[in-house]
């Protein structure tokens, strides 16, 4: 058990943590705890949000958000390198909404826009959920597992006629 993991479980008894390996600690929680957990970690020295990503676990009916947090400054009270925190939050695939974490980490903005576009996750409180990368409208957000890319390519791009032979 790592020191930061013990601190989290002491402060939030409902959240379970476990050490994946020497450099990573996994934190499993649900979306109600997101902001208080991020605030707690930021005050505790984990002041860098590395990225927000998403895994589509279609067989469980879950979109799993992954927040990766690390420290800029070394924690002097523990020997060795500080572990990176991997916060995992499951969302339902039918109605994926979660509160935006821009109030805690301002650099969450592009990540949340990307996830909105690629997975259809609605971040409440985000000021600018505009298209970031995509030019077209897709029925299903294109990085979800049930998006059939081959059929899409065959129906959309292959049907465009060649201009010359």
């Amino acid at each position: 058990m790592s020191k930061v993991g013990e601190e989290i479980t002491a402060h939030f008894p409902e959240i379970n943590t476990h050490r994946i390996d020497e450099k990573r600690v996994e934190v499993n929680t649900d979306k109600g705890y997101l902001l208080s957990l991020l605030n707690f970690l930021k005050d505790g020295g984990y002041d860098h949000l590395g990225l927000i990503s998403c895994v589509d676990r279609m067989e469980d009916g879950v979109l799993q958000l992954v927040y990766v947090l690390s420290r800029y400054a070394q924690d002097e009270s523990v020997p060795g390198p500080d572990p990176t925190l991997v916060v995992k939050i499951p969302l339902s695939r039918e109605e994926p909404t979660i509160v935006s974490s821009m109030g805690v980490f301002i650099n969450a903005e592009p990540y949340e826009r990307e996830l909105y576009e690629m997975f259809g996750i609605d971040f409440t409180g985000h000021p600018r959920l505009d298209p970031l990368f995509l030019e077209r409208d897709y029925d299903i957000p294109p990085l979800r597992k049930d998006f059939d890319t081959r059929r899409y390519v065959t129906e959309e791009f292959e049907t465009i006629p060649p201009v010359e032979d």
């Binding site: 990368f133 897709y138 294109p142 390519v153 060649p162």
Partner: peptide, 20 residues
């Protein structure tokens, strides 16, 4: 023809359909 990225949602496959 799209190469190794031909079955992507975002890669047009034949460039000569759009410019010569």
């Amino acid at each position: 023809d799209g190469g190794m990225y031909w079955d992507s949602y975002n890669t047009i496959n034949h460039l000569d359909k759009y410019i010569p």
